[in-house]
Design a protein around this nucleic acid. Structure first.
Lengths: 203, 203, 203, 203
DNA sequence: CATGAATGAGAGTTCATTCAT
DNA sequence: GATGAATGAACTCTCATTCAT
């Protein structure tokens, strides 16, 4: 039993190691430069190992994307748990979607490739759909109690498209830095609210 | 001399035809499916011709992107020329950035790949920079006379990032249709203006 | 001493189980689909075990072929023991060479692969030679007492080549079913005998 | 036009060259040793050439099999055209199916692999079916006018299965030489006919 | 004795590019 | 100028085998 657990853990470790290696290669060489050979070399393993832990290259990529999504989601959840007011929740969501060390052209660039490459793949489509649904429901939870549904929907759309747009512009080296990005969205949302609505959210 | 000119013209035509063929292949097969063989076949030419008219595949891609940018810009310019009020100018810009037949998941997807693949390349960076500068100056020209500079800057950022965000979401099959997209942006801008400002823009 | 014997017996069991597993894999996936990984999985053992019990994959295959030959031979022997007349002996041989549940395209196909793959290997050549010698001597024992040697030889050749030919055609999905196959050979042999000879064999 | 023809011919030549190279590799190394790299090396070309002339390895193999079938069939046709009596036709068919220089263990072996490997592939199945149909109709044409249908069918089956069986035994190094093989079949057929029938066929 | 993680050679295929004609 | 045959490097994936535990 102990051995089994140990072994499973070792397997999991190696899997994680490979995913991490894939991620490093991905960040440096981009999606097109992320070859199986490079991943294995980066992990310090032989080329054949990939098919031992994964079905194939595509499987590694998917695991990598899923892991990153999970980390991002968990980060947002943690931030939301610490938020006091509804307004703090909005800030938590925004800050979670622009992670400090990660909101950077090369990263944005890499992730754009993934979205582009995987949009037709139903497996990723589900992942994406889930991600957007979560984002929208999080945003909705900020406004739902104090605003009519159509305004909630509109603000939600606005915020989510601005998040994506700023990431895309980051990849194109045309986006402001992280604080300015968050600030821009906050400012936009603020401008859409009446003074009273703002006060209610901040309470 | 005449012959030389003629030749040049024929050569220009063939170059253009190759770029057009590349564009057609790109739209159908995406960036990853855009092979030199397919481009030449689509153009009805032999594979060897590419190295005569271009330095390589990358060169064809660049020419294609530049041409496409040009067409999009010219379309916006034409729309702007027909615009009566400042408000019409805003609509012209938005509609020009969501071309009816082109605002479609596969296309968005393909263009995302290009942005992702070329972001590190200074050649493309210049192209992108020019594109964004033009978009911003166009947007600024709508508001500059009636709003203080910081509000102009803010609205400009908001609009441009929403445009990009909606394209990105389109690729992820998470964006509304074209009219709703334009409507969303218009609605957002409207909400940011006072009634008086709106009236001034529509005059 | 006892332990050693026990161990040896257990080892023999596992060896046999591996061979049986190999045979099952072989029947389902064919020779080309018979990978060491699949064999061990089928046997419920780990991949490394193969090199303990066998020199390599080739060795497993050989053991499998030998075992199969043995089973087939023993089956024929058992049938021969129950045969009353010489004619019954002929039927026993034919029926033994077209096992009911096994005379089937995929199986024929798989065995063809083995013959093809191993024909150059002297180890298999000896196995094959033994097999054919036994078949011929069995057939000869049917006719030897009542027919001159050259006719015995001819009939033997005819029968053995028809058996092989029908198996080959089975693989090519061009052979009749089992009863028709046996019937065809019986019919051919019958036609080669005079009425008196037939009566003698059936006595 | 001329150029087109010339080019097509060159292409055909290269294709044929590759098929011939494949055949040589196949004869020497067997089906499993027939790698694309070896084929191209044997043809004195680079590895990439294969995909220029063929869809893939499987396509080369199929072309090779088809070409060989064609050659064999044409040889039989030529022999049949020279045959005077029906009996001569029978000999022509048999001799055509045991080509002098080719009825040899390694060749038999190689062909066995192909039959085994391709039996599940409908493309080859059609080829095989055609081959057998032709063989049977050729054999039937020898006997059809002088024998009742059921005896024609039986003799046809007997001859075709003996041909296949002798080839299989050749691969197992257990078959007689070519003349003995043909002789054995002739002898068998002869024994199945009455003296009068034989006379009619030889007329 | 048995495990299963790890290896590494080798397979088929794709494709941008070159170059003699 | 244009052709298209030819190249060769690079890619992903498979699998028999090895070996520390």
């Amino acid at each position: 039993m102990n051995i089994a657990i140990k072994r499973t853990r070792i397997e999991d470790l190696r899997r994680t190691e490979l995913i991490a290696a894939a991620h490093r290669v991905f960040m440096v060489h981009g999606l097109s430069g992320m070859t199986t050979a490079r991943i294995c070399a980066e992990a310090g393993m032989s080329p054949g190992i990939l098919s031992y832990y994964f079905k194939g290259k595509e499987d590694v990529l998917f695991a990598m994307v899923r892991l990153n999504n999970r980390i991002l989601v968990e980060d947002v959840v943690a931030r939301l748990n610490h938020a006091q007011t509804r307004w703090d929740r909005l800030l938590a969501i925004l800050e979670g979607n622009f992670p400090v060390t990660v909101y950077e052209p090369n990263v944005a660039n890499a992730w754009l490739s993934v979205v582009a490459a995987s949009a037709k793949n139903p497996r990723y489509a589900r992942l994406q759909a889930l991600f957007y649904r979560r984002l929208r429901s999080n945003l909705a939870s900020v406004f739902a109690d104090h605003l009519p549904p159509d305004r909630v929907a509109m603000i939600t759309r606005l915020v989510s498209s601005m998040i994506d747009g700023l990431w895309l512009q980051k990849a194109a080296r045309e986006a402001p830095d992280r604080d300015a990005a968050v600030g821009l969205i906050v400012q936009s949302v603020t401008a859409l609210l009446s003074e009273e609505e703002r006060r209610l959210l901040q309470a």
